[in-house]
């Protein structure tokens, strides 16, 4: 496994932002009322994440350490604005249903987290692949939650009615806020069972390695590995 596929695997499975790192909970809980919303939110975040990681990695040696967070925000905000305008132009309906959560990608903690802990320390190509992996992991998480909530809460799958014809009354709780928490909790619990099983077998999926928080001052062991 070379380092690019390792980055993809890392983002989608090992350090999945939704189920393992628990980052970006705000859009995760708020917009996953349907599968298409989850997918749309995930993909737009992915686009921003990939280009943000690329640009930040390119400029990582030029950005002074003291003002790096504002500099990251400027880059991310420009990208988000582009994505927002593109979505308004070409995906009007999706843009309407995601609403304020598109501009809020600017402060999405996955993007700042990856910029801080990965892109500002690694080369552009690796950073881009890190962005793709993390973005796809986020998309996967959101789409899973969205599908479950849509099927149970609305009786449809990607807007195709599949259960309502069978005389099934949708369980509306799943389309509302409590459903988001319930579904996320069950999926994380499921993921933890899988991880525990893998851990017992000694498979590499075990625990997220590397720097999660970017908090190097209070990090004892893991950052030492990264710095070498």
């Amino acid at each position: 496994m070379n380092k690019y596929t390792e980055r993809l695997f890392n983002g989608i499975i090992k350090e999945n932002p939704t189920f393992v790192l628990m980052l970006g909970m705000c859009p995760t809980l708020a917009v996953t009322t349907s599968a298409i919303n989850g997918l749309g939110m995930g993909l737009s975040t992915t686009v921003v994440l990939v280009f943000a990681n690329l640009l930040i990695s390119i400029f990582r040696k030029k950005i002074p350490d003291g003002v790096r967070i504002p500099a990251f925000i400027v880059i991310v905000a420009s990208l988000v604005t582009i994505v927002e305008f593109l979505m308004k132009a070409y995906f009007q309906a999706l843009s309407d249903s995601l609403g304020v959560y598109i501009p809020l990608i600017v402060v999405n903690c996955i993007i700042l987290g990856r910029a801080e802990s990965y892109a500002s320390k690694n080369g552009p190509v690796e950073s881009m692949f890190d962005g793709i992996g993390m973005g796809l992991g986020f998309t996967l998480g959101l789409t899973c939650i969205g599908i479950i909530r849509e099927v149970l809460g609305n009786g449809s799958f990607f807007d195709m009615p599949i259960l309502t014809d069978l005389g099934f009354t949708p369980i509306a709780t799943f389309a509302r806020a409590p459903g988001a928490f319930l579904v996320l909790a069950f999926l994380v619990a499921g993921m933890n069972i899988v991880r525990k099983k893998m851990d017992e077998k000694g498979k590499p999926l075990a625990k997220p390695s590397g720097c999660i928080t970017g908090d190097c001052a209070n990090c004892t062991s893991k950052c030492a590995d990264e710095k070498k």
């Binding site: 009354t169 369980i171 509306a172 709780t173 799943f174 409590p178």
Partner: peptide, 10 residues
């Protein structure tokens, strides 16, 4: 309360 939110009319 779960059912009250889920099946309000029923």
């Amino acid at each position: 309360c779960f059912l009250l939110i889920a099946f309000t009319s029923d």
